[in-house]
Simulated scan of single mutants.
Amino acid sequence: MNQLWSNLTSNFQNFHPPAQLTNNTVYLFGDLFQILEVDERRGVIILKMFIYHFYHSEFAKWDPNMYNGTKLIMAQKGTFWDPPIVLRDSIDVIYETYNDQGVLHEGYIYSLYQFLTVKLSCSFDVSRFPFDRQYCPIVFNRLAGYNHDVDFYGDEMQLKLYMDNDEWDIVHPITTSRLDQVLSEDGNNRKINHELIIHLSIERKYLFYLLFLVFPNMILYLMSGLTFLLPAESGEKVSCAVTLFLAQVVSFGTLANIFPASSRNLPVLAYFVVIVTFHMGISCLLAIFSSGGSGCWCSLADMAVEASS
């Protein structure tokens, strides 16, 4: 056992790719555990993930029959070479577990599952809010300044341990792709940056917004048209119009806190709310003018005072 350990550690260096790294390739796999937060205002998504990777080297092979049938050796993280993998768009990464490395007698060196919480920057398009779908790619590449050419391969997420989110649904499947970018080229020497992209798409659950945002505004808008069915001499025409208008103004202020703050992709629903508020304001003025008399103005003033208090 000691002889096997000595042979393995002598063949590897911690900070350089091992000799005979097969195809200069590292196989990277990730799985999503939970969506913790999606903040459209700040352009941030927070995920809890599992990741692990492995690579193959001829120098990591041995015959189990020569070492008492030993087929697997475990070592502390960092004993053997670790691929310099980083998340390109990460703002903050918290590694909650630091697992050991394993070496199989077939020549595979792998890391066990690493449990991490990652905060990523993402560009959101909320123009179809609340029926929107967001695309937030998770991009893995090598550490900046790392000179060795290492390629990455991966597979789609299986979501075996995924916990459902109350506000967002995952759009299946979550596929992966590779992107090769030529950073510099000097004769036959080309410096290529390899990226592995996990295509994560999420879709908003809209039922809450339909019940508490869309339907109430539509009801207020439809009721505003009923004020013209009231006779002017009843004295309730102005009161009804002003009450509905004030209710819409209060609703508008509430919606301003719900809508994602974006001047580039303003939600279509926001245009609807603005138009409805403007139209109900005009309806209120028309109701006042059609009623006439100073009593109506006094009623308007009294209701404004009550609303402000």
Rank of each mutant, 00 (worst) to 15 (best):
E233D: 15
L143E: 12
N14V: 15
L207P: 00
V250M: 13
V26S: 08
V86Y: 01
G154L: 03
L72R: 13
L8Q: 03
D89V: 00
V182A: 10
Y209A: 05
V268L: 11
L36E: 12
V305K: 14
F54S: 08
C298R: 07
H16L: 12
F278R: 08
L72D: 14
S111N: 15
Q34N: 05
N141L: 15
D169Y: 01
E167A: 12
E167D: 15
H199F: 00
Q20W: 08
R264E: 10
F140T: 09
Y108F: 14
H199Q: 00
Q20P: 12
Y153P: 02
M74I: 05
F289K: 11
V44T: 02
L143V: 05
I138N: 07
I73G: 03
G154M: 02
P130E: 05
G30H: 10
S184F: 09
S291A: 10
L72V: 06
V249P: 10
I109P: 06
D302W: 15
G30C: 13
F289A: 14
Q13N: 10
D155C: 04
G293M: 10
S121I: 11
V274A: 12
K61M: 06
V214I: 11
P267Q: 00
L116T: 07
H53C: 14
S201D: 05
D63H: 12
G102R: 06
A261M: 10
H279A: 08
P260G: 00
W297C: 14
L211K: 07
L28F: 04
R178M: 07
N257P: 10
F80G: 00
V44N: 01
K119V: 03
F228D: 04
Q20R: 03
F15Q: 15
F140P: 03
V171L: 01
V86W: 04
N217E: 08
S262Q: 09
C284K: 09
K205S: 06
S291F: 04
S127F: 06
N188D: 04
K71F: 14
M218R: 03
N257R: 13
L47G: 05
T25V: 15
R264L: 14
I94K: 07
L112D: 13
